[in-house]
Amino acid sequence: MSIQHFRVALIPFFAAFCLPVFAHPETLVKVKDAEDQLGARVGYIELDLNSGKILESFRPEERFPMMSTFKVLLCGAVLSRVDAGQEQLGRRIHYSQNDLVEYSPVTEKHLTDGMTVRELCSAAITMSDNTAANLLLTTIGGPKELTAFLHNMGDHVTRLDRWEPELNEAIPNDERDTTMPAAMATTLRKLLTGELLTLASRQQLIDWMEADKVAGPLLRSALPAGWFIADKSGAGERGSRGIIAALGPDGKPSRIVVIYTTGSQATMDERNRQIAEIGASLIKHW
């Protein structure tokens, strides 16, 4: 067993022997301040990774656009098919120029040779490549099948209805392509620590998230040296922004954090800054 596999296998073990965790309302004060600064709703939840206990939450059962955070769930569904012998990570998928959609920095470079399922998941999570996500959605049967996968996990809230990039439209009061912070946090925890996926697939999923290259201005910008984070960000229309993450000190994750916002007129930089400040408060009061 590799060191990384050992780390993920012992996530519940280490967490069980940690000192009790206590909620700190100071972080919620910052979440509410972010709402004021952005002029928009902000949803927040913080779960203990081992027990699933909610440590703090704000608007945990209000719907927010998922945006690209759905790509972690998508690759979880792909990995479940791999575990069941219905898919192979090494299978190569070929596609054409007509398949390319807006923001496809990886797939646009491989029109000639195609990409493997493993490479597509890596591109979808680490670079948020939209064509990679659409190609992977095709392998599982489309958005409705991802929703069905989530329902089978016990998540009857999260739903995907459309493809990239239309799913980022974020129309107010439109339930399409949305989740709730509580539902997303619980589902992410199941994917990373539950028995739904094999140990190898859980490790692969967290490795992809740990290698995320496009979430630097968010929670990662607030992390002290030595902290662990595996995350996936999302951005959408109407001032929408979000991030889902597993993080913790001492090089291992111990909490799940989900943050979503929508309806702001603020710039992307300002949305990023507010999420980073929430992260800084979380870490300060850990």
Score class of each variant (00 low, 15 high):
residue 234 G to P: 00
residue 257 V to F: 04
residue 237 E to M: 15
residue 90 G to N: 13
residue 210 E to H: 10
residue 275 I to E: 01
residue 174 D to E: 08
residue 213 K to R: 12
residue 38 L to G: 07
residue 63 R to S: 08
residue 150 L to E: 02
residue 265 Q to K: 15
residue 50 N to G: 14
residue 121 C to A: 08
residue 135 L to Y: 03
residue 177 D to P: 01
residue 102 E to D: 15
residue 108 E to A: 11
residue 163 W to Y: 12
residue 161 D to P: 01
residue 240 S to F: 03
residue 261 T to D: 01
residue 231 D to P: 04
residue 117 V to E: 02
residue 282 L to R: 01
residue 183 A to K: 08
residue 107 T to G: 05
residue 203 Q to D: 11
residue 230 A to K: 00
residue 84 A to F: 09
residue 219 L to S: 03
residue 35 E to R: 03
residue 146 L to Y: 06
residue 94 H to W: 13
residue 272 N to D: 09
residue 94 H to S: 11
residue 2 S to D: 07
residue 117 V to S: 03
residue 14 F to R: 01
residue 22 F to H: 15
residue 167 L to G: 05
residue 237 E to D: 14
residue 85 G to H: 11
residue 59 R to Y: 04
residue 239 G to H: 04
residue 183 A to V: 13
residue 5 H to D: 09
residue 169 E to L: 13
residue 5 H to K: 13
residue 171 I to W: 14
residue 239 G to M: 02
residue 202 R to A: 10
residue 20 P to D: 15
residue 149 F to N: 06
residue 117 V to M: 10
residue 67 M to N: 12
residue 78 V to D: 01
residue 7 R to P: 10
residue 52 G to C: 04
residue 257 V to M: 05
residue 3 I to Y: 14
residue 181 P to Y: 00
residue 114 G to D: 04
residue 281 S to D: 08
residue 132 A to E: 00
residue 218 L to N: 03
residue 235 A to T: 06
residue 47 L to G: 03
residue 228 F to G: 05
residue 14 F to W: 07
residue 17 F to C: 09
residue 234 G to W: 00
residue 148 A to D: 14
residue 45 I to V: 15
residue 27 T to Q: 06
residue 170 A to P: 08
residue 271 R to Y: 03
residue 178 T to M: 03
residue 281 S to E: 14
residue 196 L to P: 13
residue 244 I to W: 00
residue 214 V to I: 07
residue 76 G to E: 01
residue 86 Q to H: 13
residue 153 M to I: 14
residue 185 A to Q: 00
residue 71 K to H: 00
residue 100 L to Q: 05
residue 135 L to W: 02
residue 218 L to M: 10
residue 130 N to F: 00
residue 158 T to P: 00
residue 156 H to M: 08
residue 122 S to M: 15
residue 72 V to S: 06
residue 150 L to Y: 08
residue 269 D to K: 12
residue 285 H to Q: 10
residue 163 W to N: 11
residue 163 W to P: 09
residue 268 M to H: 09
residue 18 C to G: 10
residue 255 R to K: 12
residue 138 T to R: 15
residue 66 M to W: 01
residue 16 A to M: 15
residue 187 T to A: 09
residue 64 F to H: 01
residue 164 E to M: 00
residue 249 P to I: 06
residue 241 R to N: 04
residue 274 Q to E: 14
residue 18 C to P: 05
residue 109 K to W: 09
residue 188 L to F: 14
residue 272 N to T: 08
residue 213 K to E: 10
residue 133 A to V: 02
residue 15 A to Y: 15
residue 63 R to P: 08
residue 36 D to G: 15
residue 256 I to E: 01
residue 149 F to H: 08
residue 207 D to G: 14
residue 23 A to K: 05
residue 213 K to A: 15
residue 254 S to W: 09
residue 16 A to S: 15
residue 94 H to L: 13
residue 176 R to H: 10
residue 136 L to D: 00
residue 225 A to H: 14
residue 98 N to Y: 14
residue 247 L to K: 05
residue 278 I to V: 09
residue 121 C to F: 01
residue 224 P to S: 06
residue 32 K to N: 10
residue 190 K to V: 12
residue 240 S to E: 09
residue 188 L to R: 00
residue 133 A to L: 00
residue 147 T to A: 07
residue 59 R to N: 09
residue 175 E to H: 14
residue 126 T to R: 07
residue 103 Y to C: 05
residue 145 E to G: 15
residue 175 E to L: 14
residue 194 G to P: 10
residue 167 L to T: 08
residue 162 R to D: 09
residue 275 I to V: 12
residue 232 K to F: 00
residue 166 E to P: 06
residue 79 L to Y: 02
residue 3 I to F: 11
residue 25 P to M: 10
residue 210 E to R: 10
residue 148 A to F: 12
residue 23 A to S: 07
residue 249 P to H: 07
residue 60 P to G: 15
residue 73 L to W: 03
residue 170 A to Y: 12
residue 92 R to A: 09
residue 3 I to T: 11
residue 161 D to H: 07
residue 115 M to Y: 03
residue 274 Q to Y: 10
residue 104 S to N: 05
residue 10 L to M: 12
residue 283 I to Y: 15
residue 73 L to N: 05
residue 217 P to T: 11
residue 191 L to T: 06
residue 51 S to P: 03
residue 69 T to E: 02
residue 199 L to I: 15
residue 87 E to L: 11
residue 165 P to R: 07
residue 254 S to Q: 15
residue 279 G to R: 01
residue 152 N to A: 13
residue 106 V to I: 14
residue 259 I to L: 10
residue 282 L to N: 03
residue 268 M to Y: 09
residue 74 L to A: 06
residue 227 W to T: 02
residue 47 L to C: 09
residue 16 A to Y: 08
residue 133 A to F: 01
residue 170 A to N: 09
residue 76 G to I: 05
residue 14 F to E: 01
residue 112 T to K: 15
residue 65 P to I: 03
residue 13 F to L: 12
residue 117 V to D: 00
residue 66 M to Q: 06
residue 38 L to C: 07
residue 229 I to T: 02
residue 266 A to E: 12
residue 255 R to L: 05
residue 60 P to N: 10
residue 111 L to Y: 09
residue 105 P to G: 04
residue 38 L to W: 06
residue 159 R to L: 05
residue 173 N to V: 10
residue 22 F to G: 10
residue 83 D to W: 02
residue 81 R to Q: 10
residue 232 K to P: 00
residue 24 H to F: 10
residue 227 W to L: 01
residue 14 F to A: 11
residue 93 I to P: 02
residue 213 K to Y: 09
residue 10 L to T: 13
residue 111 L to K: 08
residue 237 E to N: 14
residue 117 V to A: 04
residue 6 F to V: 11
residue 63 R to H: 08
residue 203 Q to K: 12
residue 59 R to C: 04
residue 113 D to L: 08
residue 53 K to Y: 13
residue 37 Q to A: 14
residue 274 Q to K: 12
residue 161 D to Q: 05
residue 8 V to H: 15
residue 125 I to H: 03
residue 69 T to N: 02
residue 40 A to F: 04
residue 240 S to T: 07
residue 167 L to M: 12
residue 69 T to R: 00
residue 91 R to K: 10
residue 249 P to D: 07
residue 176 R to V: 06
residue 197 L to G: 04
residue 32 K to I: 11
residue 69 T to L: 02
residue 131 T to H: 04
residue 245 A to I: 02
residue 164 E to K: 01
residue 196 L to V: 14
residue 79 L to M: 11
residue 147 T to P: 03
residue 8 V to L: 14
residue 214 V to N: 07
residue 61 E to A: 13
residue 158 T to K: 00
residue 256 I to G: 02
residue 204 Q to G: 05
residue 6 F to Y: 10
residue 267 T to W: 05
residue 164 E to R: 01
residue 121 C to V: 03
residue 256 I to C: 06
residue 216 G to R: 08
residue 50 N to S: 13
residue 258 V to Y: 01
residue 138 T to Q: 15
residue 110 H to F: 12
residue 168 N to I: 05
residue 88 Q to C: 10
residue 81 R to M: 08
residue 157 V to P: 02
residue 63 R to N: 07
residue 53 K to M: 13
residue 15 A to T: 15
residue 127 M to V: 13
residue 144 K to V: 12
residue 86 Q to P: 05
residue 242 G to K: 00
residue 21 V to W: 05
residue 7 R to T: 15
residue 7 R to K: 10
residue 223 L to F: 05
residue 89 L to I: 07
residue 136 L to R: 00
residue 207 D to Y: 14
residue 186 T to N: 13
residue 10 L to D: 03
residue 44 Y to N: 00
residue 65 P to N: 04
residue 172 P to H: 10
residue 175 E to Q: 14
residue 202 R to V: 08
residue 262 T to S: 11
residue 189 R to N: 11
residue 156 H to P: 10
residue 87 E to Q: 08
residue 180 M to Q: 15
residue 172 P to F: 09
residue 5 H to S: 07
residue 185 A to N: 00
residue 108 E to G: 12
residue 82 V to S: 08
residue 111 L to H: 09
residue 3 I to M: 08
residue 62 E to H: 08
residue 116 T to I: 06
residue 12 P to T: 12
residue 167 L to N: 07
residue 282 L to E: 04
residue 62 E to K: 06
residue 278 I to P: 00
residue 65 P to C: 04
residue 172 P to L: 12
residue 96 S to E: 12
residue 55 L to R: 09
residue 280 A to V: 13
residue 219 L to N: 03
residue 87 E to F: 08
residue 19 L to S: 15
residue 89 L to N: 04
residue 81 R to P: 00
residue 38 L to H: 07
residue 192 L to Q: 04
residue 126 T to W: 04
residue 62 E to G: 07
residue 56 E to R: 09
residue 117 V to W: 01
residue 48 D to E: 12
residue 31 V to M: 08
residue 121 C to D: 00
residue 178 T to N: 03
residue 107 T to P: 01
residue 21 V to G: 08
residue 95 Y to R: 01
residue 37 Q to M: 14
residue 228 F to I: 08
residue 181 P to G: 04
residue 138 T to M: 13
residue 60 P to I: 12
residue 141 G to H: 07
residue 139 T to P: 03
residue 74 L to R: 00
residue 104 S to V: 04
residue 143 P to R: 03
residue 92 R to K: 12
residue 66 M to G: 06
residue 15 A to K: 04
residue 11 I to L: 08
residue 175 E to P: 14
residue 181 P to L: 03
residue 101 V to L: 08
residue 37 Q to H: 12
residue 250 D to L: 12
residue 41 R to Y: 11
residue 136 L to M: 07
residue 186 T to S: 14
residue 175 E to Y: 13
residue 234 G to M: 05
residue 244 I to F: 03
residue 188 L to N: 02
residue 28 L to T: 09
residue 37 Q to S: 14
residue 204 Q to N: 14
residue 109 K to Q: 14
residue 19 L to T: 15
residue 161 D to N: 08
residue 271 R to W: 03
residue 240 S to C: 08
residue 90 G to A: 13
residue 95 Y to V: 08
residue 162 R to A: 06
residue 112 T to N: 13
residue 216 G to W: 08
residue 235 A to I: 04
residue 169 E to Q: 12
residue 118 R to S: 15
residue 126 T to P: 02
residue 241 R to M: 04
residue 275 I to Q: 01
residue 62 E to L: 07
residue 145 E to T: 11
residue 170 A to D: 08
residue 248 G to E: 01
residue 68 S to Q: 00
residue 134 N to Y: 03
residue 68 S to H: 00
residue 72 V to P: 10
residue 211 A to V: 08
residue 268 M to I: 10
residue 13 F to N: 03
residue 99 D to H: 08
residue 194 G to N: 10
residue 154 G to V: 04
